[in-house]
Amino acid sequence: MIKIDQVSKWYGPTQVLKNCSVEIARGEVVVVCGPSGSGKSTLIKCVNGLEPFQKGAVTVDDVSVSNPKTNLPKLRARIGMVFQHFELFPHLTVRRNLTLPQVKVLHRARDAAEKKAMQLLDRIGLRDHADKFPGQLSGGQQQRVAIARALAMDPIAMLFDEPTSALDPEMIQEVLDVMVALARDGMTMIVVTHEMGFARKVADRVVFMDQGEIVEDAATVDFFAKPRSQRAQLFLSKILQH
């Protein structure tokens, strides 16, 4: 459903993505990992056009992201995205964070949006916090709300950009639990993360990146059992120590 085909990107003279190609089928969960600065975040931001790229093609559900004729906002509304720093809108209550995009982008009726929002808040266990402002919630709670906000748009796929990297260790699990539930529900997901436990549990495939290149793209079991490349082996040995 998502096809990244030979994508290259430069910031000035520095090439940050080198001929990256990945395909993600409907319902698949793909974890993207690799050392920092390897281009993981940049790559998934190419999927919804938040990062422009100079070469190659990305298509989502047969819609080209880089085609100037594509209605990008319309495409983005169908792809959920969760950010490292949550990016909830601090001037709106949790409830408004969930309803505003539904009403303004999808043109849903106010009470339908409200109903949807409350269902999702129920699902992540934060119904009682609906009328608080994001700043009054913990990091883990904020990130769960951010996931709910993305889900409120009924996305066909979800992108996660290091969703637990900015969290205190004791809050990581509550966010991962929501993501695991989502994966088991059959959501198509691309997850940039260092949480190898999560990858083991629900990922169908693991994509390993280093210096802007996709070094390895393997089934989860194979990746953890015996990574083919040396760079991936080194990365795993470092990250799995703790």
């Binding site: 931001k45 919804n48 938040l50 906002p73 319309k74 495409l75 983005r76 509304a77 169908r78 792809i79 959920g80 995205m81 950010f83 720093h85 990016e87 909830l88 809108f89 995009p101 303004k104 982008v105 999808l106 906000r149 993305a150 748009m153």
Partner: peptide, 13 residues
Amino acid sequence: PRGQLAAAQALGM
């Protein structure tokens, strides 16, 4: 923060 813009855009705004 630029992230706020990115979040709004990612939601299709």
